[in-house]
Computed example of a mutant assay.
Amino acid sequence: MTPLLIIIPVVLLVGVLALGAFMWSLRAGQYEDMDGAAQRILDDSADDAPPDKR
C-alpha cells in the first residue's frame, strides 16, 4: 500500500507536466503548419543553388 502513496502523486505530477508542455507547444505555434515541413523536404531548389565562395 505504501508504494501506491508514492507512485500516484508522481504519476499525476508527470501527467500535469506533460499537459503543460503540450499546452506550451500549442501556444508557441508548433502545430500551425503541418504540411509545410512535408513539402519542404521534397523541394530541392535549395540544393540547386551554387555554394557561397567567400
Rank of each mutant, 00 (worst) to 15 (best):
residue 20 G to Y: 11
residue 42 L to P: 04
residue 21 A to R: 07
residue 2 T to P: 04
residue 44 D to P: 06
residue 23 M to R: 12
residue 9 P to C: 12
residue 2 T to F: 08
residue 25 S to Y: 06
residue 45 S to Y: 02
residue 16 V to N: 01
residue 46 A to F: 09
residue 46 A to H: 08
residue 5 L to P: 01
residue 11 V to Q: 02
residue 43 D to Q: 02
residue 11 V to P: 00
residue 20 G to N: 09
residue 41 I to A: 13
residue 37 A to S: 06
residue 1 M to R: 12
residue 38 A to W: 13
residue 39 Q to M: 07
residue 21 A to L: 13
residue 34 M to Y: 13
residue 18 A to F: 10
residue 26 L to Q: 12
residue 33 D to V: 04
residue 25 S to A: 15
residue 43 D to E: 03
residue 12 L to T: 02
residue 52 D to A: 11
residue 16 V to H: 01
residue 35 D to Y: 11
residue 13 L to D: 06
residue 48 D to K: 12
residue 22 F to Y: 14
residue 17 L to W: 06
residue 14 V to L: 15
residue 34 M to R: 15
residue 23 M to G: 07
residue 45 S to M: 01
residue 4 L to M: 10
residue 47 D to A: 08
residue 32 E to T: 14
residue 46 A to G: 09
residue 22 F to V: 09
residue 51 P to V: 00
residue 42 L to V: 10
residue 11 V to D: 01
residue 40 R to L: 05
residue 6 I to E: 14
residue 35 D to G: 07
residue 5 L to H: 04
residue 20 G to P: 00
residue 18 A to V: 13
residue 38 A to S: 14
residue 26 L to M: 12
residue 39 Q to N: 05
residue 23 M to K: 06
residue 20 G to I: 09
residue 26 L to K: 14
residue 43 D to V: 03
residue 21 A to K: 07
residue 19 L to H: 10
residue 44 D to W: 09
residue 45 S to R: 11
residue 15 G to Q: 05
residue 47 D to P: 03
residue 37 A to K: 04
residue 52 D to T: 10
residue 18 A to T: 10
residue 12 L to W: 02
residue 1 M to D: 14
residue 52 D to I: 09
residue 24 W to L: 15
residue 44 D to A: 08
residue 50 P to G: 00
residue 15 G to F: 09
residue 14 V to K: 02
residue 36 G to A: 04
residue 52 D to W: 02
residue 9 P to A: 07
residue 50 P to R: 00
residue 19 L to W: 13
residue 26 L to N: 12
residue 14 V to C: 03
residue 25 S to N: 11
residue 29 G to V: 05
residue 19 L to Y: 13
residue 13 L to F: 08
residue 48 D to T: 12
residue 13 L to C: 06
residue 10 V to L: 15
residue 14 V to S: 08
residue 22 F to R: 08
residue 19 L to T: 13
residue 20 G to A: 13
residue 37 A to E: 05
residue 47 D to C: 02
residue 43 D to P: 04
residue 15 G to W: 04
residue 4 L to R: 05
residue 10 V to S: 15
residue 25 S to W: 05
residue 48 D to R: 07
residue 9 P to I: 06
residue 52 D to N: 06
residue 37 A to L: 06
residue 11 V to F: 11
residue 9 P to N: 09
residue 43 D to H: 01
residue 27 R to T: 09
residue 10 V to M: 15
residue 33 D to P: 05
residue 54 R to T: 13
residue 37 A to F: 08
residue 3 P to V: 04
residue 18 A to C: 10
residue 54 R to V: 11
residue 38 A to D: 09
residue 45 S to L: 00
residue 40 R to S: 07
residue 5 L to D: 03
residue 1 M to C: 11
residue 4 L to N: 05
residue 3 P to M: 08
residue 35 D to S: 10
residue 40 R to V: 01
residue 31 Y to G: 07
residue 25 S to F: 04
residue 54 R to M: 10
residue 8 I to Q: 09
residue 47 D to H: 03
residue 39 Q to A: 10
residue 30 Q to Y: 10
residue 3 P to L: 11
residue 30 Q to V: 13
residue 47 D to L: 07
residue 39 Q to G: 02
residue 16 V to D: 00
residue 54 R to E: 09
residue 31 Y to M: 08
residue 35 D to N: 08
residue 54 R to N: 12
residue 49 A to V: 14
residue 6 I to D: 14
residue 48 D to E: 08
residue 26 L to I: 14
residue 29 G to R: 02
residue 17 L to H: 02
residue 33 D to Y: 03
residue 34 M to N: 13
residue 12 L to I: 13
residue 21 A to Y: 07
residue 52 D to E: 09
residue 19 L to I: 15
